[in-house]
Design a protein around this nucleic acid. Structure first.
Length: 832
RNA sequence: GCGGGAGUGGCGGAAUUGGCAGACGCGCUAGACUUAGGAUCUAGUGAGCAGUGCUCGUGGGGGUUCAAAUCCCUUCUCCCGCACCA
């Protein structure tokens, strides 16, 4: 360990300054009017037990933003907390016998310690944990506000059930091919009575307001638009011969005259009625049963052969009173539209395939504007584009757009249906049959029915000393002290709801709680929320593009409509950071490619860990871990350390270094580099969050400083200039590597803290030069370069360029047709 | 299938407005200092021809332009999201 003496002692330095900052409450934030506010927030972690590199990346990015904005004079809110309810705590309880509460709080303590070793500038006084009664009481309060305003309701519906997690899931939590977002198990459909939030009331606004978020990645907005899935069309009232209504939703109402049959989803309630007592009863029922048995993957696969069966019944097309057969088929979904579609085989590919398979008629009602006319007999592919309506009564001869308008008007006039906007978005299922979550504040009374818990009785405490049974059921079901209560309305005996809320409810408002985390009588102080909101910069993983980010937008809008907050949107700007990879794959225990923050911090220190993770790739991109590159970052910090500490004795005493005399050209160049570096680093952070290039600029500046020193006799060193350079270097490094910056700041003769200093400014004048290097090209190829003064005329530039030996060689014997001069950059001779 | 992103040295990446391709870092090569080097410093490092210049070079092909990693057309590969949405 001989070489350790030559390396800087990060262990001692980092722990000392972390303690200092904490003792001085350096990052404590209060509302103030003399500074502009800036709210920077990173998605709070689930306390799984230990930090991983993804956390380090997320929080390092946030910390650079926070520190940078603070130095720029903003009043910065930078809080941290815990998304502390959730299933892993229960699984751990079952496995190890530790109660979820204890397990969670232990993990929080451990991870908080780890976060502190990273030197992140949080205001820890604002720490929150969603599993604390002081927090979840207000989650319950929010539930009640939704309930009282018709936005929370209980309904029986076919819901997604994860057999492994033993709970239902929201649609958003079913990913990929119908798998549980958490454990990957294939979900099953079950008819259950559950609590929902009426997010569909906000579908239109959630969609529209995406346009108010230019600071969000386009990718995320597209994903949300897709998820909301708005489509405009008409609901047309078909009916059976007996007169039972069968509304169908279509976006191609202009093709209604081409409907040759009608299809019901297997789950459609009318199916049973149509077949009862007929010869079709048995086969159709068998078919329906077969389809319902299929799991989500099979059912929604595009590979799935379209299959169906005639019900024996007929429907009447209200537009032309034509009788068309009613079928049941596996390609119609009960969840979308009305669960019934009018089939227009000529103009819909799915209908065409189905019609061909079962010999159903095909009727062309739209012809392309140009090209060959379609023919029923030879139709290979459905013509789904716009064209001209034919054989369509009142809309024949009209182009699609006009035909749609006219037929929609007609349908509405005659009462045959109405225009409708359909959304794919479904209401948010928030019930969970799990223990470790915020209890839904509802009481069931035999006499009064569903009774909300009065606000004064909140919180509904979650009992913490619980035992788990191997059945997978929530322990709450067996806790009579929890279960049995009295009805708030009639005083009679009643029972509590034992389901808890989806943890995404808890995380949909935590950013509001940070603004006034100790509020006793309200979820948050409106004045403080109004002061801080919205979040200026939100940072987190793209995996929350729909889930968390849409739920949080929804609840913000609800709370706005109820008068509790003033903003329409919670997150003004969103940065979705890339993953941390090793050997091209996401770090995971099963792949054995995990590098833990702990080992890196203990070997190289937090500053090196932060520097590497910020330097190795721009924040939005995936980052490939490299042990060698970490080593390189550590080397760089040592290089800075040696550079600055070598001169601390000389520089300590220098107090006057604001007006610096620049004598030699070395000094002038060095000074220019210093200002150019400030400019580059500032703009890279501010405009683009390109920390990697900002850091590379700092590295170049360090290299330039070494060059200046090498090229100058030590007795001739301009010490005030050097002091200024070191001062700026340290200030520029402060957001990235806060500990070494603080230590060096003090060592060159300042009082702590460097993190309370102003961000350095560059001098536009100092950037100017008299001489520039110009590129000389012949036919676009570089043939030489030359030094010219900045005010050289185009004529002079051309003349001078022509005199270059190598340029002469390439022009010789040829004719100069043209010369393009880009001032201070290049000159290009076009020759032949 | 639809939508989005990416493709640049041995590697991570840079090139911000169409103007020097490869900044910065890793790795590698040689040298210096050294008892030693997994420390530090110096020089070099896209490929080829070769000796200081030339040719080629940003997934492939074509085009626009005095000039293209950057703009247009076309094509291939990889990653992500959605996927019978009527």
């Amino acid at each position: 360990m001989q070489q350790m003496g030559k390396r800087y002692n990060f262990e001692e330095i980092e722990s000392r300054w972390q303690k200092y900052w904490e003792d001085k409450k350096l990052y404590k934030t209060v509302e103030r009017e003399d500074k502009e506010k800036y709210y920077v927030l990173e998605m709070f972690p689930y306390p799984s037990g230990a930090l991983h590199m993804g956390h380090v990346r997320n929080y390092s990015i946030g910390d650079v933003v926070a520190r940078f904005k603070r130095m720029q004079g903003y009043n910065v809110l930078h809080p941290m907390g815990w998304d502390a309810f959730g299933l892993p705590a229960e699984n751990a309880a079952i496995k190890h016998g530790t109660p979820p509460s204890q397990w969670t709080w232990q993990n929080i303590a451990n991870m908080k310690q780890q976060l502190k070793t990273l030197g992140l500038s949080y205001d820890w006084d604002r720490e929150i944990a969603t599993c604390h009664p002081d927090y979840y009481r207000w989650t319950q309060w929010i539930f009640l506000q939704l309930y009282h305003n018709g936005l929370a309701y209980k309904a029986k519906a076919p819901v997604n059930w994860c057999p492994s997690c033993c709970t239902v899931l929201a649609n958003e939590q079913v990913v990929g091919e119908g798998r549980c977002e958490r454990c990957g198990t294939i979900v099953k459909k079950r008819d259950l009575e559950q609590w929902f939030f009426r997010i569909t009331n906000y579908a239109e606004e959630l969609l529209r307001d995406l346009d108010k978020l230019p600071g969000w990645p386009e990718k995320v907005k597209i994903m949300q638009r897709n998820w909301i899935g708005r489509s405009e069309g008409v609901e047309i009232n078909f009916r059976t011969e007996e007169g039972d209504p069968i509304p169908v939703f279509t976006t191609r109402h202009d093709t209604v005259f081409g409907a040759t049959y009608l299809v019901l989803a297997p789950e459609h309630p009318l199916v049973e009625k149509l077949i009862r007592g007929t010869e079709f009863e048995k086969p159709v029922r068998e078919f329906v049963e077969k389809v319902r048995q299929m799991d989500y993957i099979q059912r929604t696969s595009t590979e799935l052969e379209k299959e169906g069966m005639f019900t024996g019944a007929y429907a009447v097309n209200p537009l032309n009173n034509e009788k068309i057969p009613i079928w049941v088929a596996n390609y119609v979904l009960m969840e979308y539209g009305t669960g019934a579609v009018m089939a227009v085989p000529a103009h819909d590919q799915r209908d065409l395939e189905f019609a061909k398979k079962y010999g159903l008629p095909i009727k062309i009602v739209v012809q392309p504007k140009e090209g060959e006319k379609l023919d029923e007999g030879s139709l290979k592919e459905a013509f789904a584009e716009e064209g001209i309506s034919v054989n369509s009564g009142l809309i024949s001869g009209l182009p699609t757009a006009e035909a749609k308008e006219k037929i929609a008007d007609y349908i509405e006039e005659k009462g045959l249906g109405k225009r409708k906007v359909n959304y794919r978005l479904k209401d948010w299922l928030i019930s969970r049959q799990r223990y470790w979550g915020a209890p839904i504040p509802i009481i069931y009374c035999d006499r009064c029915g569903i009774v909300p818990v009065p606000e004064k009785d909140l919180p509904v405490y979650l009992p913490e000393d619980v035992e788990f049974k191997p059945t997978g059921e929530s322990p709450l079901k067996y806790r009579s002290d929890f279960l049995n209560t009295t009805c708030p309305e009639c005083g009679g005996s009643a029972v509590r709801e034992t389901d808890t809320m989806d943890t995404f409810v808890c995380s949909s408002w935590y950013f509001l709680r940070y603004t006034s985390p100790h509020e006793k009588d309200r979820p948050f102080d409106k004045e403080k929320v109004d002061y801080w909101m919205n979040v200026d910069q939100y940072i987190g993983g793209v995996e929350h593009a729909i889930l968390h980010l849409m739920y949080a937008r929804f609840l913000t809008k609800v709370l706005r409509d109820l008068g509790y907050v003033s903003v329409d949107e919670p997150f003004q700007n969103l940065l979705t950071q890339g993953m941390v990879l090793k050997d091209g794959a996401k770090m995971s225990k099963s792949k054995g490619n995990v590098v833990t923050p702990e080992e890196i911090i203990s070997e190289y220190g937090a500053d090196t860990a932060r520097l590497f993770i910020l330097f190795a790739a721009p924040p939005e991109r995936d980052l490939e871990w490299s042990d060698e590159a970490v080593e390189g970052c550590y080397r760089f910090l040592n290089r800075v350390w040696r550079l600055v500490t070598r001169y601390t004795d000389d520089l300590k005493e220098i107090r006057d270094y604001n007006e610096i005399l620049l004598n030699t050209s070395e000094e002038k160049n060095f000074n220019r580099l210093m200002h150019a570096t400030i400019k580059k680093v500032t703009e890279d952070i501010e405009k683009r969050f390109n920390f990697n290039t900002a850091i590379s600029a700092v590295m170049e500046f360090v290299n330039g400083t070494y060059d200046y020193i090498e090229n100058t006799q030590s007795e001739n060193l301009n010490l005030p200039l050097l002091k200024k350079a070191f001062t700026n270097l340290i200030l520029l490094m402060a957001p990235f590597t806060p500990h070494i910056a603080e230590e060096l700041w003090v060592r060159i003769g300042n009082e702590p803290s460097v993190h309370e200093q102003s961000w350095p400014k560059y001098d536009e004048e100092a950037l100017k030069t008299q001489m520039v290097t110009m590129i000389v090209q012949v036919n676009g190829k570089v043939r030489g370069r030359m030094e010219v003064s900045v005010d050289t005329s185009e004529e002079e530039i051309k003349e001078k360029a022509m005199e270059l030996e190598n340029v002469k060689n390439h022009i010789k014997g040829k004719k100069v047709l043209k010369a393009i001069v880009v001032p201070n950059k290049l000159v290009n001779f076009v020759v032949k």
